[in-house]
Design a binder for these strands. Structure first.
Lengths: 285, 285
DNA sequence: TTGAACGGAAAGGTAACACCAATTGCACCA
DNA sequence: TGGTGCAATTGGTGTTACCTTTCCGTTCAA
């Protein structure tokens, strides 16, 4: 179903949006750089209408500003909608994907404990039941060392919490969190057998949510994220792909795997077409 | 500089984007509702090109989906880019502004401690100096009960932390956090004289950041947010504007004040024009 | 030196057109 | 009755041509 949209339903403006978005996100078109509609028409061999639509979208993302008589100016990163999935994706595909990955993980660490606490208040009965069920399942699967299935249930666990939080802003992060978790297992970066502490903490989170104990849910989730934090902390120094990353090999390998582990929904339709400018760089997360 | 853009640079597509965005965010155009370009052309008396550009922007925000032969379909809220400033603004202007305010405050509570911790690692020397300076200033102003100035410096304090975190996603939330803080003082909802504990905690955060003690900065900031949390916790039950809000009067009054306390940058240019569909509802935050 | 007027560049907007994809409905056959 | 397939219709997609509006840079005059 995706591939059909890929060749037919995509639209002409999409590739040019993608290309220019990547170039801006990569810094190839630095802030202050000026484009013109005529230039875009010519470069991509499209009509004025299509060029304008692509610019309008970039403008709505804060990546460019269009002014009469001047042209289309690239804006500084401070003006970008850094939460826009497309922008996230472009930055993850470009040279500063390390920085973007760090900010995303940092965001995840910030949000998940609160989401767990909120879920303890806001979850439906079905969600509470499911979260307990999942925690029990995780223990069974973990003891059986069924890593593949463990991972899938773990993803479901975290997605469920974010969505059950009743906060759509938290829920919107579910996709990203799921990608990180999937990636870790897929690359064999999880322990061969999950440590008992992890399963105890999943249990604690689940029980707290089921019984509406918000503070406990939050605390337990925070404990669950300690491992992620310690993996991330050394990574807070800026670096380029050229330099060896100063952080743990876990995240490093997550970033550099091929094929990519995750493609945001908004880009999925065109991904299989292999039209990406940085094929080896689109790994991420 | 804003007013100039207001009458001239705005563009024809902007009002129709605003109107339709609000209507979708308000649920007046529910998920599944189908629009057509012809309908939009006629309703707003604009050309096809303009109508299409507006739709493209809404589409990039995930609010609608355009399909041949079918028309333009409103998508469910789960597909929206809920972090897009325009979407935030529309939701804050509509009937579910209570929910949006809650999610934003929840996000703030999640993010600020991590931002403080990150700032302890990533802040520049100038930023570290400034944050200490601000904390000292806050103590002086607080003891002198100079509320107006206290608030301004407090806003600067929190904005500085979010920006010094080195995480643009955190930095992007500075505007919203600033609005909440300004609003509280502006409505006289802060204590007449800030409590000493608050100033102690500001000091603690500042010192920890200045000296690079991440964990301490995070903990102190979390303590600083306790008050916000307790004000928010009762508010986690869904409610409509009709029902009396179950939470503290603080947030309630923040939400219902007029004139509005904050308008996002992306909407500022057109706000003074008084063309808003819900003039009394655009208060927020 | 300053400032007012002017030309032109580039985006903004309109209109009309051909095109194409998908849906719908009808006819036909099993 | 029900499923298959063809064809008409509908509504977005893309192109082109043309005009309007803004405002930057230059130039000319006070």
């Amino acid at each position: 179903m995706i591939e059909r949209r890929n060749r037919s339903g995509a639209g002409l403006h999409d590739p040019i949006l993608e290309k220019l978005g990547m170039e801006i996100a990569a810094g190839e078109l630095p802030a202050g750089h000026v484009l013109t509609l005529d230039g875009i028409q010519e470069r991509f061999s499209v009509s004025r209408t299509v060029a304008r639509e692509a610019m309008r979208i970039l403008e709505s993302m804060g990546l460019v500003e269009s002014r009469r008589r001047v042209g289309i100016t690239v804006r500084p990163i401070a003006d970008w909608n850094v939460f826009d999935p497309k922008v996230i994706w472009w930055r993850l595909s470009g040279p500063d994907r390390g920085a973007q990955l760090r900010t995303l993980t940092e965001l995840r660490i910030a949000v998940e404990p609160l989401a767990a606490g909120a879920a303890a208040r806001a979850a439906t009965a079905a969600q509470r039941a499911r979260v307990v069920e999942l925690a029990a399942l995780l223990r069974t699967l973990g003891e059986a060392a069924d890593l593949a299935e463990f991972m899938e249930r773990d993803v479901e666990f975290h997605e469920l919490l974010l969505q059950a939080s009743g906060n759509e802003m938290f829920g919107a992060l579910a996709e990203v969190v799921a990608a990180v978790l999937r990636g870790r297992t897929q690359l064999g970066l999880m322990p061969h057998k999950p440590v008992p502490e992890a399963m105890d903490l999943h249990d604690a989170v689940a029980a707290a949510i089921a019984e509406g104990r918000c503070a406990e849910a939050e605390t337990a989730m925070r404990a669950l994220l300690v491992e992620v934090r310690t993996a991330m902390l050394p990574g807070l120094v800026p670096w380029s792909p050229r330099d060896p990353p100063p952080w743990s090999t876990t995240l490093w390998r997550l970033m550099s795997c091929d094929p990519p582990l995750w493609v945001p929904r908004c880009c999925a339709r065109r991904f299989p077409s292999c039209a990406l400018p940085h094929p080896t760089a689109c790994n991420l997360l």
